[in-house]
Design a protein around this nucleic acid. Structure first.
Lengths: 219, 219
DNA sequence: AGGCGTCATTGACCTAGATCAACCAAATTC
DNA sequence: GAATTTGGTTGATCTAGGTCAATGACGCCT
């Protein structure tokens, strides 16, 4: 995360933890004793309304940070989507470290501001986009996130179930399924498997997100 | 913001700027040369889709920070809702100051994390709440924000037009107007003026937000 | 005081997406 | 390998909230 000495210290205080897919391992309101970062797997940050409606408010991928220094309570439920490995630190010890190493505070600030930017992009999606645009934006985000490593048309993993996607996009699972079918029939994407897709027409997909040509998703 | 010496230094580098109500004074994509904090007035952070739909992604009140250190481009349009006074700092100079004063970085981190929490609460509102719940949540937020100073039933200022509220809540201005009328007819709130309301039944208002009894808005 | 631009309210419709429901296919259990 | 279970698709309806349109209520300007 930062430089040698700090890394060494982080190293001494860290411990690993694994969680099985589907398990909610942090609950809103519980005391926040450990911070962690995702090593392997995927998790979601969720909030549930009193009558059971739920909204995913964050997607945690490897290297993402879980919990926030300076708060004593957990703010959102955290659920493992796949099997998950976390690297954990004692919160108070970590906070001390942050206070002593300015670099780390700056790095944390940068990460928080990036997350804030993507949360705001997501607010536009939730507040103003149509179902079709939401789905296209979601697929486009996955493409951008995976493209880093592979060249072009490798199949991309769809890590969430239809229901989880729906809770992420503020839709119902039926609408998710229908819109995916429509994009498939239109030839923008193709599924080889319920959980893996290939983009056939990236330009059309991005057109379908409704975003300005220039400034789409930041994540 | 922090301690004496830093404050003094901030003091030397600051300058003031005033903006007239309605003016959009920062545009997405423009170079970010100054950071600032709101001294007086209200502003909104906006994003506009290609076809003109807009979503407010942040409400800036006095003491809120505008712009983000470590980015060279403006990420969202910023519009003055009322006449506005800003206290501005040169971005690069401010960044230098942040690097040299760990305290400041920590304070910035805290602010960023608080904003992130409220952005996430807002995502729940945008993705899952009904129009009625959105309006109730909005009024409740205003109550919480003003309650700090006054005792109980003082009239609360509604700083935005119906249209701006709609863009904040992901609704249309007609729906905003209708839902406000309904809450009025039900006796939860009363308007003395298009822009000032009194809460008559706070418990019922909070009930109508749809939030869990305990964990509502963080802001 | 009269005329105008802005903001708000209310009504009459319409449509995107939710809801309800049937069915399918792959994975898991016995 | 039959029987559940879990996740997905598709169809038929319903409805919350959007859209379109008329009217009202203030300023504000001359």
């Amino acid at each position: 995360m930062c430089d040698d000495q700090e890394l060494a210290r982080l190293d001494r205080m860290k411990s690993y933890r694994t969680i099985k897919a589907g398990e909610t391992f942090l609950w809103r309101g519980d005391p926040l004793v450990q911070l962690s970062s995702v090593v392997r797997g995927i998790a979601t940050l969720n909030k549930t309304l009193e009558d059971g409606r739920t909204q995913v408010v964050g997607l945690l991928l490897p290297s993402d940070f879980v919990g926030r220094p300076g708060r004593s309570e957990i703010g959102f439920d955290v659920t493992a989507v796949t099997d998950l490995t976390l690297c954990c630190f004692d919160r108070q010890e970590f906070e001390r470290l942050v206070q002593e190493t300015p670099r780390l505070a700056q790095r944390m600030l940068e990460m928080a501001l990036d997350e804030l930017d993507s949360a705001r992009e997501w607010m536009v999606l939730l507040g103003r986009k149509t179902a079709r645009e939401k789905i296209a934006s979601f697929l486009d985000m996955l493409v951008r996130r995976t493209r880093v490593k592979d060249g072009q048309l490798e199949p991309i993993a769809l890590p969430l179930t239809r229901d989880e996607i729906a809770n992420f996009l503020g839709l119902t699972l039926e609408t998710v399924s229908r819109q995916l079918s429509i994009l498939r029939k239109e030839g923008l994407v193709e599924f080889q498997d319920r959980r893996h897709f290939v983009v056939l027409d990236l330009a059309a997909l991005q057109e379908a997100t409704g975003d300005d040509a220039d400034g789409g998703m930041i994540v």
